Amino acid sequence: MRIVAVADTHLYHAQLVVPHGDVFVHAGDLCRFGELDELAEAAAWLRSLPHRYKVVVAGNHDWAFVHHPREARSLLGKGVIYLEDSGVCIDGITFWGSPWQPAFHDWAFNLPRGAALAEKWAAIPEGIDVLITHSPPFGIGDRSWNGDRHGCADLMARVRQVKPRLHLFGHIHEDGGVFRETDVTYFANVTTWECGRGPTVLDVEGGVVEEIEVPKARP
């Protein structure tokens, strides 16, 4: 299965060169301010992509999924799978998605560090192949411009318990890339940093994850 993954497009999606693949994943922050008109624009772009499957997790800028959840999900359309503490199986590969992150200014899907976030991560089931969160785990792909780390330690603890083959996330624009922290799980911060960075392309086959390319955005 070839997965083409992005995050943090913030309505700059027209600048992206999106490669073909089997599954297109957006790990949150389709929008800038996050209301329905912006989501409608982003959803039209998603539906225009040729990938057979499209999987979306909301991010902290995607307020429509908080303020108008039914309308927001409807706007995505039938061809887009929205995951919010839920999962889907695609061609034998299991995906689980969750939008939460440690409290970050006054944005959507914020929760305080500790018990509240740990409760959300506890819902991540064992046996999944691909985990999609907007938040990074602590210590991987979570370093901001000043060197501070913003990932969630409880998320990392849960990832080490459930051992997905691949963990996709975004949120922190400055630390995109693919990382190998254990013998089991590949981690990928798939941020496009408002489309200055291209999509992340990964092949998942058996127990192997391979990064294929990181295409450049259009100038």
Rank of each mutant, 00 (worst) to 15 (best):
H105R: 15
R218A: 15
Y82P: 01
A103L: 14
H68R: 09
E119V: 10
Y186C: 13
D203M: 04
P69W: 05
H51W: 06
R113W: 01
L46A: 05
I128P: 04
N189E: 01
T182A: 09
D142I: 02
H67V: 13
A72D: 06
A7F: 07
A43C: 11
A14T: 12
T9A: 14
A116M: 08
D8I: 06
T192S: 12
W107P: 00
Y82R: 06
I132K: 07
V18D: 09
H26W: 03
H10L: 04
T94W: 05
V80Y: 01
D142G: 10
P19S: 03
H171E: 11
E211P: 00
D148M: 10
F95K: 02
V209L: 07
R218K: 14
C152D: 15
F95M: 07
G139W: 00
C89A: 14
Y186R: 13
F138Q: 09
L36T: 04
L16Y: 00
D148A: 14
N146Y: 13
G207C: 12
D22I: 10
C89N: 09
W121P: 02
H13I: 12
G176I: 01
P102N: 08
R149V: 09
P137L: 15
V190W: 00
E38Y: 02
C89W: 01
V56K: 04
T133S: 15
A123H: 07
D154Y: 06
A7C: 01
G141W: 08
D91C: 08
V201Y: 00
V208E: 11
I124W: 02
V55F: 02
Y53S: 12
H134C: 06
L46V: 09
H61K: 07
E126V: 05
E174S: 15
L75W: 00
G196W: 02
G34R: 01
K54I: 11
S86M: 07
I172T: 05
S98V: 11
A5D: 10
F187R: 04
H51N: 10
S135D: 03
V23Y: 00
R149W: 03
W145L: 15
D203C: 06
R113T: 09
S135C: 14
A64R: 05
P112V: 09
A122C: 07
W121L: 08
F33A: 13
E126N: 10
G59T: 06
K78G: 07
P99V: 11
P102R: 00
P19F: 01
R149M: 13
A188F: 03
R197K: 14
G151C: 14
H134W: 02
P215L: 12
I90R: 05
D183P: 09
S98N: 13
T94A: 13
K54L: 12
G151Q: 12
G139V: 04
G21L: 03
R149N: 11
R158M: 12
V66H: 00
S86I: 09
I132L: 14
Q101T: 01
W107E: 07
E213Q: 15
I128G: 06
N60I: 01
H13E: 15
G147T: 13
P215T: 09
V130N: 05
N60C: 05
H13L: 10
